[in-house]
Amino acid sequence: MVLKFEAKWEIPYVHSAGEHGTKFFEALREKKILGVKCPECGRVLIPPRAFCERCFVDTDEWVEVKDEGVITTVTVTYIKFTGLPDPPYATGIVKLDGADTGMLCLLGGVDLSDWKKVHEIFKPGTRVKAVWKDKPEGKITDILYFEPVEG
């Protein structure tokens, strides 16, 4: 028999969003999604960032993108991980109209109990639209999830 000691890390962090992030989150309060356009490759990058990794130049042209787009992929989690959302929850990547990169996000608005049915609804190419919090606070969670667009 060996002894075991319990331990837990509780360390506070205050993460800076930076100037680019700040602009993005302020726009979220008005239910707007902003991306930056790279002056060299012309891609509209979401989440916005201070530089384009590919071209290695500063980015400062802001572009509003739609809160609607297409799913590129999805997964539904069915087991509980410590500290992560209660299952089931659907995580996916959505390419918003007007953006050149996808956004990792939650998907919802449908019954998630049967994964096969979920995958029939949320497929690569399925159009989805953001469902917003009633009173956005300027956080990424202002977008509750993306749900299928009717029709």
């Binding site: 992030g21 989440p47 995580t91 990424i140």
Partner: peptide, 19 residues
Amino acid sequence: IYERHSGAGAISVAAIQAT
């Protein structure tokens, strides 16, 4: 800031490849 809320971990990241 942008992505942690999605609940993504290693398994979900592989799952989205599989999909």
